[in-house]
Design a protein around this nucleic acid. Sequence first.
DNA 1: CTGAAAGCGCTAACAT
DNA 2: ATGTTAGCGCTTTCAG
Lengths: 342, 342
Amino acid sequence: MERRLNLEDVGRRAGVSRSTVSRVVNGGHVSSETKRRVEAVIAETGYRPHAAARSLASNSTGVIGLVIPSAAGTLFDDPYFGRLILGTSSATNEVGMTLALFLFGDGPDESSIISRVVTPGLVDGVIVTATTRGDPLIDHMQGANMPFVVVGRPDSAGSTFCVDVDNRAGARTAARHLAALGRSRPALIAAPSNTSAGIDRRNGFLEGLAEAGLSVEDRIEEGDWSQESGRTAMARLLAGQPDAVFVSSDRMAVGALRAVSEAGLNCPRDISVVSFDGIVPPDLTTPRLTSVVQPVTEVGERAVRLLTSVIGGAAAPEHVVFQTRLAVRESCGGAAPAETGA
Amino acid sequence: MERRLNLEDVGRRAGVSRSTVSRVVNGGHVSSETKRRVEAVIAETGYRPHAAARSLASNSTGVIGLVIPSAAGTLFDDPYFGRLILGTSSATNEVGMTLALFLFGDGPDESSIISRVVTPGLVDGVIVTATTRGDPLIDHMQGANMPFVVVGRPDSAGSTFCVDVDNRAGARTAARHLAALGRSRPALIAAPSNTSAGIDRRNGFLEGLAEAGLSVEDRIEEGDWSQESGRTAMARLLAGQPDAVFVSSDRMAVGALRAVSEAGLNCPRDISVVSFDGIVPPDLTTPRLTSVVQPVTEVGERAVRLLTSVIGGAAAPEHVVFQTRLAVRESCGGAAPAETGA
DNA sequence: CTGAAAGCGCTAACAT
DNA sequence: ATGTTAGCGCTTTCAG
C-alpha cells in the first residue's frame, strides 16, 4: 500500500513547488505553461487534495449540516423530510459542498449528537429544522458561534436567519375556500401547538374563518402529524357534525379521510376536506386531496443558499418566506378545476 | 472574535502539556488528579477538539458516507430510502460517527459528486446503495481504495462486502402463498431488471410458481418502482385475466390496486395481490396489502457496522443476508391472521 | 509568476 | 504518568 500522493509529490513530478500546485488546484494565478504541466501530472496521477488537511489550513470544511431533531420513528413516514433533504442535498451539491445529516433519535444520546453538531472543524454551518418552541438547540448554535439558518419560524425571530413558508396565509386561504363553498360548520385538526407551523396554521385558519363570519366553536382537535392521529381526531370531531375540516397536514388528512369513510360518511358530499402540504401524491387518496401546497424542495434549496451567505459573513439577519398555493382537487367538493392557483 | 481554544491553551491553564490534555480527551492513561484538573478546565472553557485537525493527524475522519445514485425526483417517493437513511443514521450515531449524504441528482454534476465521494480525508468509508447492474460507481470505490459496503447484491459479489435481503426467497414465499390460496393464473409486475432486487424478486417468484406447477406465461410486466408504473402495468395485465399478481414493491402495488379498482374489479375477490417491501403503512390501502416484509432499517444498521469493521481492516469479504417475512393481510384474500410469520 | 517558510490543531512515537 | 518532538497535507503570507 503506497503512500497517498500529496502536493509536494505532484510538485516534484511537475518540476514546481507545492505552492504552485496548490495554486493551480485552487485557481490562483499561474502561467498557462506551468499550469498545463501541473494539470497533466494531476490527471495522470489521479491526485486529489486531502479534505481534512485543506480544512485545517483554510479553516473551512466545505460541508454543511442538516439537523433534524425529531423522534426518528415518525420522521420519514411524512414525505416532508425526504423532500427537504432532497432540496438541501441538491443545492449543496450545486455549490460544491457536502451534506452531513444529523438525525436525533429519541435515545439518550441526543445531547451527545447535539454537541457533535457544533464540533469545530466538522461543518461550516448548519440548517436546523423541525424545532419545537423553546428548543435548546438554537441556543446551542448561537452559543457555539456556529453559522446556522432555521427552517421554520424560530422563537426569537429577531436575531436569526430563517426560511419559512407563509403557513398563516396558506391556512387562511383554506378557510376562505371552505367558506366560499358554502360550508358553515368548519372543524380543525391542528398540528402540534409547540411548533411554529402548528401555531401559524391554526391561527391562519381561524382568522380566515372569522373573516367569513364563521368559527370552529368546539370542533377542534390537535394531532401529532401522524396519520393515525388524524384518524382519531377526525373520528372525535365527527360527533360535532362538521361539514368541513381543515387538516393541518396531508398525512393527517389521509387518516382523517379514512375516519370519514369508516363513519359511513362521504367526502366531499358530507364533509369537505382541505389539508396542508401538498406533498402526498394526489392519486394516493380517494377522493384526491385539496391541499395548500408548500414548496418544500425550494425551501431546502433556499436554506442552503442562505446558509452559504451566512457562512460568508452575511450582515443583517434575513427572513425568507415562501408563499403557498391552493391546489383544488376533489376532497373539498369545490367545482374548480384541479391545480388552480390560490 | 477571540481565537478558538486549542489543546495548548487548555494545557497551559491546567498546568500540563498539550499531550496530557489530548490523553484525557481521548481516554489515555492520566493520573486521576491531573485528569480532574484538566477536565475542569475543559468544562469551564467549553473546549472542543477541532475535527479537521484531528482527522489530519489521526488519518481518520469519523464520518461515513451514504451514497444513493438515483434519480433525485423519485427517491423519496418510496419510503424505502427514508428508512434506510434512518437505519444508517441511527447506527452511525451509535458508534459516535457522523453521516454524510451523497445523493446523485440527474444532473451532469453526477461525475463531480461521485469524485467528491472518494476525496481523501473526507469520509472513512461509504455505504453504496441503489446501484444498477454494471454501475461504474463500485469500480470507482475500488479504484480509489476507499472502504465501502454495498447494500444490495453487487455484480461481482466476490470481492466486496455487502448486506442484502433474500429477495429471491421472499418472492418465492409470495408465489407459494398465492398458489396455496388456489390461484391459478398468476401475474407478475417486476421491478427494473437492471437492479439486483428486480432480478432476484422476479426469479424467486417464477421459481416458487414453478414449484407449484404454475407459470405466469405472458402475464408479466416491468415497472420502474413508481406507483404510476404499477398502475399502468396492472392495467395492461388485466387483459390476460390474472387471478393473482405479485408486485415487486409496495409502492407499485398501491398503483396496481388502483388499476384493479378502476377496472371495476375487486381485490382480493377477483384478483389476489401480494407485494414486496412491507413498508407502506397497511392502513394506507384498501384492502390492506399482504407483503413480503424486508427489514430495511436493520439493513442500514448492519451496513454501518459492517463498514466500521471494513474500515478497521476486516479480512475476508462478508455477505450479510437478511431474511424476509410474509405479512398476510387482506389483499391476497388469504384467511390467515394478519402479520403471520412466513 | 513562483518558491520558501510558517503555521492550522491535533496525534503518536519517543523519551523521561 | 507526563513532556518533547515530529509530522499529517494543505493554505497563505512574504520574498523575490
